[in-house]
Simulated assay, not measured.
Amino acid sequence: MLRTIKATAMAALCCAVAGTGLVACEETPTVDGKAIEESVDAAVDDALDDADAVIGATFTGTKKIKAEGRSVNLSCAGAPADGRPVIVLLAGAGDGLDKMADLRKTLGERDRVCSYDRLGEGASDQPAATQRQADSGKVLTAVLNHVAGDGPVVLAGHSLGGLIAARYAPDHQDRVKGLVLMDATIPALDAGLAKAVPDSATGPAAELRDQTLAANQGQNPERFVIEDAKVRSAGDIPVAVIQHETQFAEVPEYGPALEGMWSAGQQQWLALSSRSKLTTAAGSGHYIYTDRPDLAVEAVRDVATQAAADQR
């Protein structure tokens, strides 16, 4: 509606000015040498952004928003809590936001919490091309703008969602005030796999290695290329790193090497902050938030509480 109002206002303005004999309607009216249309455009765009932020801070349920010209599926629960950050959940590769519905509902009992389908996942549009961290980060920024405005957020990601959150936070320290990484994809997965499962490997271990390397090169629903990179600091923020207890039992010959690789990668994530803490989810496989929902909820709430205290 605001877009229509803008066009109508410009037509009325042009006619009114022309009626005074100052300018013809074919010309672009200016103020201080600046086109009035440009000024109106900027003002309306600002108003739309403000309106989106208000709507995003209040809606409950599932809706579609636009991000980078694509439709993104977004779901939120809970009411904004005074002084506490908005919690945003990021699922792993191949998972839509429905996978984290129980976690979102439980966290929503005390906090404002949202999750979304990345491009290629769930009910969101397919990506237009191969994606990298910067591309996924632009969509995440649009989501944060909608649900939190310029307010603080805590990102809680599982697997690939954890890696995306951890790579995003260092470049957005103005808004990301806490991280929870639930068995996040490790910082150097390609190099780790090459060392843990050599080319001479056969059977299930070789299949696991080859499928993972192919997925890392973009053969996944998101067309997301997972690149090895060093861990960068996200500032002095609270960071909870949670790793599984057992995951690679199906490849017993290389299981210990893979477990060692994964554990070392979780240790590397601690470099995100001097306030990082690593825990092991006893009895859990890769899906920590379903195997140990109690631990996941506790970690997210604890990080959110610390982040809120930091803002006071």
Rank of each mutant, 00 (worst) to 15 (best):
I65D: 01
A42F: 02
V31E: 14
R118V: 01
V231M: 12
T28I: 15
A57M: 11
T141L: 15
G92A: 08
V251W: 11
Q247T: 07
A7E: 14
E27F: 08
A128N: 02
A281E: 00
Q243S: 13
V180E: 12
V88S: 03
A156H: 00
G21Y: 04
A24P: 07
W269N: 04
S233M: 11
V147Y: 01
R132Y: 07
D102A: 12
I65W: 09
G56R: 07
V40E: 06
P293W: 04
L107V: 03
L270A: 09
T8K: 14
A77T: 11
V153N: 00
L13I: 08
V197F: 07
A307L: 10
Q243T: 13
Q217P: 02
Q306D: 10
V72F: 00
K230G: 14
D171T: 08
A234F: 04
C25L: 11
V86C: 13
E38I: 01
G255A: 15
A53N: 03
A134I: 09
V231F: 06
R223E: 14
L22D: 10
E27M: 11
Q126M: 00
V72T: 04
I164Q: 15
G178Y: 07
A205Y: 06
E245I: 09
D294R: 00
V251G: 07
F248Q: 09
A234Q: 09
Q133G: 00
H244C: 05
V40H: 02
R223H: 12
